[in-house]
């Protein structure tokens, strides 16, 4: 198809997603994003430590409300996200192809899997409590119930290679249980994450529940790992970098964050996830009450 040479296309500015808004990086920096073949695609905002700080504030602000939604409501909202991703297939296909250098068919498989993963996790919202909670038969006249509750604000270093399927596979399990997330996207492949943020912005996910920072996990990660108002951190995005992972684990100890450790290599995201993707970011709360007249 011949291109209309008289029209200059309007390029998109890729921005951060914090508290439901799309700010540029506070630092003013951006970085060049190339496609898999090394061709310029866009400038992405380069998140700074202050962007991370702002994102944590937004996530904390959203935490109470999101955790307070009914599980059914969170399920519906996540399912709606899946619907919207499906609705934007062409855009996501392009982003995944560009980012990961996949054929259209392979990119389609990845997109299918990503949408299906969202649907899978959406369904867990009102089931995890039943599967991992317990009624405890204590030796006394007490009602005793243990249930999982969100741990709070979770920093997520998203995988570097799998820019969409990997991304939703680490974000959905965090928020489905009622946590809010500060996500650092793949550094080299941030565009699916930005597009995903745009989907979130038009979805029913409240602002601040998922915040997306494009940039370097190595730069922003330490600030999130040491942040005293972050409750947990997922180090998946620095798979294989044991030195950095060790540093971040040490930093995370400052307030005893729950840490999902960095794997030796990026996992195979096509496999069905385990419950640990969710249970790593919940607290079991046990409530006692006497039974009497």
């Amino acid at each position: 198809m011949a291109r209309d040479t008289t029209r200059i296309d309007v390029r998109k500015t890729y921005k951060l997603f914090i508290g439901g808004a799309f700010p540029r990086s506070e630092s003013g920096y951006s970085y060049v994003v190339n496609d898999a073949k090394g061709k310029f695609v866009a400038n992405a905002a380069l998140a700074s430590r202050k962007d991370a700080r702002d994102a944590v504030v937004a996530a904390r602000k959203a935490a109470g409300g999101w955790a307070g939604r009914t599980a059914y409501n969170r399920a519906q909202i996540l399912y709606r996200v899946a619907e919207l991703v499906e609705d934007r297939r062409p855009q996501f296909l392009l982003a995944v192809q560009q980012s990961e250098g996949l054929s259209a068919a392979k990119a389609g498989d990845v997109l299918d899997a990503a949408i299906d993963r969202l649907v899978w996790y959406a369904g867990w919202a009102d089931k995890l409590t039943q599967v991992v909670g317990n009624a405890n038969p204590v030796a006394g006249p007490f009602f005793n119930l243990s249930t999982p509750e969100p741990t709070g604000v979770v920093a997520v270093l998203a995988p570097q290679e799998s820019s969409l399927l990997g991304l939703v596979s680490v974000v959905a399990p965090v928020v489905v249980t009622g946590n809010t997330a500060v996500v650092v996207s793949s550094y080299d492949r941030p565009l699916p994450a930005v597009t995903f943020a745009e989907v979130l912005a038009t979805s029913d996910v409240p602002g601040g529940v998922i915040n997306v920072l494009t940039g370097s996990a190595a730069t922003v990660g330490p600030w999130l790992a040491s942040h005293m108002d972050v409750n947990a951190i997922d180090l998946t995005g620095i798979a294989g970098d044991t030195a950095l992972a060790t540093d971040l684990e040490v930093a995370a100890a400052d307030n005893l964050k729950r840490v999902r450790r960095a794997p030796a290599a990026e996992p195979d995201w096509t496999l069905t996830p385990g419950l640990d993707t969710m249970t790593d970011f919940v607290e079991i709360k046990t409530v006692w009450h006497p039974m009497g007249v």
């Binding site: 204590v138 005793n144 243990s146 709360k285 046990t286 006692w288």
Partner: peptide, 27 residues
């Protein structure tokens, strides 16, 4: 935000009942 909530009782422990904390109270 507490791993164990005792309502109308306190300091009760039982082997069947999980115990542990949020935040800096443990993992």
């Amino acid at each position: 935000k507490a791993g164990v909530v005792w309502a109308n009782t306190f300091n009760k422990f039982d082997p069947t009942s999980p115990f542990g904390g949020y935040k800096e109270s443990g993992q």
